[in-house]
Amino acid sequence: MEEIIKSIVLGICSGGIYALIAVSYVVIYKSTRVFPFSQAAVLIIGAYIMWYCTIAWHIPIWLGFVITCAGGAILGMFVERAFMRPLVGQPILAPIVVTLSLMLFLRGVGILMGKGDVQGFGESFLPVGAWQFGFLHLPKIQIYAFLLCAVIIAALILFYQKTRTGLGMRVVHEDHVVAQNLGINVKRIFQYSWIISCIIASIAGMLLGNIQGVGLALDANGIVAIAAVLFGGLESFSGAIVAGLTIGILQMLTIAYIAPLLPGETTMMVPFVFLLLVLFIKPYGLFGLVRIERL
């Protein structure tokens, strides 16, 4: 029983970051209808920018944070403008293959940035140590990271609900052509989505780098988060959040109960098996939009 509660609490903590990554996928998918596989590798880039700022160049943490966000934004803008925009209106396979290739491209850039090694932050930029609640041993890093994720997601949802651009993004989600006819600059919305998503992914990347160490293995988190997005339904923020947390809990339970029984990287495999089962029962995920097809 203790073990289960511990797994669930820790799972929620680590699930916060999955939720954040999942949200970064959803932002782009909602407006462009292209699934951005590349965000898994943006995690690596974000983590490395932060690492260079704080460790290599000794820049204050807050400035490093700003620079990382700016780096993410520039990356998002560049990717959208250079690679994605020429493919608007092309057969659906082309943009998917481009984002997949971009994932590997950015991974290659990551290898060059990190010279192939796993780098630690030396000194964490979030408070270290742990709180002890009875049998629960909660690392402060995890808690703070979780809170930060919650704040960012809340801010993003507010942005979608309250601002004019957010309204535009929701309209674009409904229908590209209609949005264009209503006078919304769809191309600009696409660009905003990529920028926002890449900023979110870089933040998630540096949080993960802080917890796990900066290295190429970070994109495994991104790929697990893909399972979360699908599980929640591709177009829903609330789905992404719920699914992110669920996947986090699932991973912790896997570590506690399944990993001792099976060899190898079960934490990678179990979410995907789970995903297969879920999709078989609910093909559009938990909160996915089931469109009534018309003829």
């Binding site: 995903l275 297969l276 999709l279």
Partner: peptide
């Protein structure tokens, strides 16, 4: 259909 199936193959 579509992307959901793509992820099933990824799995």
């Amino acid at each position: 259909k579509g992307l959901y199936l793509a992820f099933a193959t990824l799995a």
